[in-house]
């Protein structure tokens, strides 16, 4: 019975577990410092492929485009550790705080 006081206190303060939803009202927003979807600033990338070498889950592939070599991130393999961002010598890789990545098509999880 000793937790009865806590239950009443929390009720009075309207503290409760929040109901989360994917969209609209009650949508969860991550902290700005959250490590979410990976992105590339193409103009800064020099194609050194250090990110590919250091990626622990082999989620990065180096491809050739009109400007030269560049990484392609497969978010279905990515574990959002942020090592590519650390390894990048020109700070071309960034991580946004985008939290939810549910898609119907696997292709949408490739960051090109």
């Amino acid at each position: 019975m000793s937790v009865l006081r806590d239950i009443i206190e929390r009720k009075a303060k309207r503290e409760r577990v929040r109901r989360h939803s994917l969209t609209g009202e009650g949508k969860v927003e991550a902290d700005p410092s959250f490590r979410g979807r990976v992105g590339l600033k193409r103009e800064l990338c020099i194609g050194c492929s250090l990110c590919e070498k250091d990626c622990p889950s082999a989620a990065i592939q180096i491809v050739q485009d009109e400007k030269g070599k560049r990484p392609v991130f497969s978010l279905d393999r990515c574990m959002f550790c942020g090592q590519c961002k650390e390894s990048c010598p020109t700070k071309a890789i960034y991580m946004s705080s985008e939290l939810q990545l549910p898609v119907f098509d696997r292709k949408a999880l490739e960051v090109r």
Binding site: D31, S33, F34, Q83
Partner: peptide, 15 residues
């Protein structure tokens, strides 16, 4: 967990 997320960027696997 909120403090860990603010400090490191993730709630559990902090890296």
């Amino acid at each position: 967990l909120g403090l860990m997320e603010a400090l490191s960027g993730n709630r559990i696997t902090s890296s």
